[in-house]
């Protein structure tokens, strides 16, 4: 609640005068969005992306055609040796500001409202989620499941359960990017960020690093493996048994002690 309030104040404060129009537009859009039962930001992304691309294509083609027509009509030829546009009247000059401002402003506010709705889908995580911790490092993704099971470069999740990643880094910046799920967010030392996605069908997807993190940045890839719920449960059971039989190993602290972080990162950079 408190966060929503801040969100709204921040947005509205920036908006000043146009706030009423925008707020009502946003409210309308929110109501529409609430109808969708199972949220899937990736799908909504495709939808909004498509819409925005169509809109900008229309605007672009219109502008380009008008420009091309002006250019063709104005080519220099006998009888047209010098430009003939006359000075605008004061009313004309003002009109040519007010009209475009009005058009641009409405497009902006409409786009902003849609963008805000989708943003809320990306940031409001469903309650029935699987929460996995991610520590990124040069150059691997290390996942820790709620029961302590750990994997490296393989994020294995059950189909049908939203997945929330709480992310940090032990050295430089990284960005956990799953192109097929249209989502990424940086992970960085000293801060915790999050992202979530909704895996619906079993399958395999690429996870790749989207923030320049060092020499081997281009090779920092992993896999997202979505298993059918039963298969996932079986896999998790195996992992749990294995974890139980190797207690001493996994009793190590999850992250390196803070003071060591910078040093180890330094030597890691030197090694490569």
């Amino acid at each position: 609640m408190h966060d929503k309030l801040k969100l709204a104040t921040g947005a509205l404060a920036t908006l000043l005068l146009a706030a009423p129009v925008w707020a009502s537009a946003a409210a309308g859009a929110v109501a529409e969005g609430a109808m969708v039962k199972i949220k899937d930001p990736a799908r909504e992304w495709d939808h909004l992306w498509h819409e925005v691309i169509v809109d900008i294509s229309i605007i672009g083609v219109l502008f380009a055609l008008v420009t091309a027509w002006f250019i063709w009509n104005s080519r220099r030829r006998p009888g047209n040796e010098v430009g003939a546009s006359t000075k605008l009247t004061p009313a004309g000059a003002v009109g040519w500001v007010v009209l475009p401002v009005f058009v641009f402003l409405s497009i902006d506010l409409y786009t902003a409202a849609n963008g805000w709705v989708l943003w809320n889908s990306y940031r409001d995580v469903p309650a029935n989620r699987l929460e996995v911790k991610l520590e990124a490092g040069m150059y691997s993704w290390d996942y820790t499941y709620p029961n302590g099971v750990r994997t490296q470069n393989e994020l294995i999740v059950p189909a049908g359960t939203p997945v929330l990643l709480r992310m940090t880094s032990r050295d430089t910046l990284h960005s956990h990017y799953i192109p097929d799920f249209r989502v990424k967010e940086d992970s960085m030392p000293g801060r915790i960020t999050y992202l979530w996605f909704n895996p619906t069908k079993p399958g395999e997807h690429i996870v790749t690093c989207a923030e320049y993190c060092g020499v081997m940045h281009g090779y920092m890839a992993g896999r997202l493996i979505i298993k059918a719920p039963e298969e996932y449960a079986a896999w998790m059971k195996d992992e749990e048994t294995r974890l139980a039989s190797t207690v001493p190993e996994s009793a190590k602290p999850a992250a390196m002690p803070a003071a060591a972080t910078k040093k180890s990162a330094k030597s890691a950079a030197k090694k490569t």
């Binding site: 641009f104 902006d108 902003a112 943003w119």
Partner: peptide, 21 residues
């Protein structure tokens, strides 16, 4: 995608769009 506060990201979405004017 750097982990800024959500309200800042939304606020500057609006200012960024307004630059189109």
């Amino acid at each position: 995608v750097s982990g800024m506060a959500d309200w800042l990201r939304i606020g500057q979405m609006v200012t960024t769009l307004l630059i189109s004017i």
